[in-house]
Design a protein around this nucleic acid. Structure first.
Lengths: 202, 202
DNA sequence: GTTCAAATGGACTGATGCGTCCAAAAATCA
DNA sequence: TGATTTTTGGACGCATCAGTCCATTTGAAC
């Protein structure tokens, strides 16, 4: 009877993580393991067999999710006019911030920041920090090519990300509704790109 | 023996709120009433005499704090060049986001968003929403005066606020250290103002 | 059909924390 | 000094929850 095994039912592991994501998103970090077990249609003991303890479960959850969330950013666009690439970037960022499911994860991390600071740091590194670095790389390249004039790419990348998240981040964190109408998101993304390009045009 | 009174020792009420602010900031919403009582050098029962229940205590805490935090924004600057006013605005916003004490309150609100959504909404209205409206008013006025060209003041105000908060907001929420060096904040504020003005110059 | 790992569910421990109760002490006021 | 109100501190009830234990059942491989 091993307490913690790797070669158990993969499907069940996924089901548990899905349920944990849902329940934690609804009830916050205070959600009980039993509630998660009920949602996953699994016994409490099974969760402990798979993950060992609550903290490990949450770490697994976060690890699985973070990479999914930032994945779309990694597909670097072709080299058209910067505004088009910036619009695509902005659109992805805004969609992330408007995505309730992604944000429930962030909320959990914020709540757990006191109890597990390493986790909070890992999320920050994998999420916002990586995102900023990707954007900064792009801005530096465009500057190199003479299509933009960005003196401090990291700083500019942060401005860009900040324009995208704006109050949506706050509202999402507060559990308030966030406008996720695709048309409005597209329009907003285009505006961000236009204004940002104007601020950093050669 | 009234269970909840208003005319008790005001000084003690303040001491309790101060202690609650500290302890909740450190331990998050999970902080116990007993810990707060210890910090305030007061008995647990006294806290219940003053505030009735934990939720009421937190509501009182938030109400007292929010207005203090956004107060500096209300002093509208004289009518110099927009960049100067924008720099001052940015500086205030960045200082708020870099202020650990202010942010511990926000963190508590985020944690409690599930359990007390009205509180979260109140904080949002009193904080970010009011801030955005103030900035938007200023931008509209400058546009009217022909010194800027802001087509959508509310949207632009959100961009401006987003540029100021950037990742600092995230880091602060995650309980990570935030660079609060006055010189760097001043420089950042000036950069934000310069770039924002360039994005919205006539 | 035998075997063995994995899953179940229910009971249990230990800890924590909200909110209450109360009798004694301290402070306030008349 | 005497009367009233607040404060104190400690004990208590009650609920919740993490994590463990275990006897029983399921299910897949051989």
């Amino acid at each position: 009877m091993p307490r913690l095994v790797g070669q158990i039912d993969q499907v069940k592991s996924e089901a548990i993580l899905d349920a944990a994501s849902d329940v934690l998103g609804e009830r916050g970090l205070g959600a009980s393991i039993e509630a998660i077990a009920r949602r996953a249609a699994v016994s409490k003991q099974t969760i402990y067999n798979h993950f060992g303890c609550k903290t490990a479960l949450i770490e697994a959850l976060v690890a699985r999710r973070v990479s999914h969330i930032t994945a779309p950013l990694r597909v670097s666009g072709a080299a058209e006019h910067p505004i088009e690439t910036l619009t695509a970037l902005a659109q992805t960022l805004i969609e992330i911030v408007s995505n309730e499911r992604a944000y429930s994860l962030i909320r959990v991390t914020v709540q757990g920041a006191g109890a597990m600071p390493e986790l909070a740091k890992a999320v920050f590194e994998a999420g916002p920090a990586t995102t900023r670095a990707l954007i900064a790389d792009y801005l530096a390249a465009e500057t190199q090519a003479g299509r933009m004039a960005v003196d401090d790419p990291m700083e500019a990348a942060e401005f860009f990300a900040g324009m995208c998240s704006g109050h949506r981040q706050f509202r999402a964190l507060m559990g308030m509704e966030v406008n996720a109408d695709p048309e409005q998101i597209a329009h907003l993304a285009h505006t961000v790109a236009k204004r940002f390009f104007r601020a950093y045009a050669p």
